[in-house]
Design a protein around this nucleic acid. Sequence first.
DNA 1: GCCAACGTTGGC
DNA 2: GCCAACGTTGGC
Length: 153
Amino acid sequence: MAYWLFKTEPSTFSLEDLKNRPGMTEHWDGVRNYQARNFLRDRIKAGDGVLIYHSSIPEPAVAGIAEVVREGYPDFTALDPESKYFDPKSSPEKPIWYMVDVRYVETLQRAVTLERIKGNPLLAEMPLVKRSRLSIQPVTPEEWQIILSMGRA
DNA sequence: GCCAACGTTGGC
DNA sequence: GCCAACGTTGGC
């Protein structure tokens, strides 16, 4: 059981969209960064907790929680020439990109803004704070607990 | 919309 | 394998 933070631009896909999903699961596709890919392919398991973070908005914030329901498998959008995530270097035999499936769990009462995260010294080691653009990041159990308590307060 | 950070590409 | 050019991310 591990914890993660997934970034998304709410104009593309938001926590609300995940909540309103029929069956409430979603392929987390379109990740095209090798470091993030490695987490998706090798480390993220069913049952892991996910903080859903909304980026590129006036107040970027952790909006809520999702759960991984299926571990890494090849991202089929990389093989679809019609997809904006198409990658001609990828093939069914040698898939380059991976995705996981997630389901909605909870919307935090109070979104935990980047400003509040930066203001908490206990969260200073998060990649988010260290200005990494990484879209899939590990979260420690301590960080997970702190952010949830900040979001529920 | 700007721009710093940083990942990727490709010529050599 | 180096590194300049280029593209993307994402906070502000």
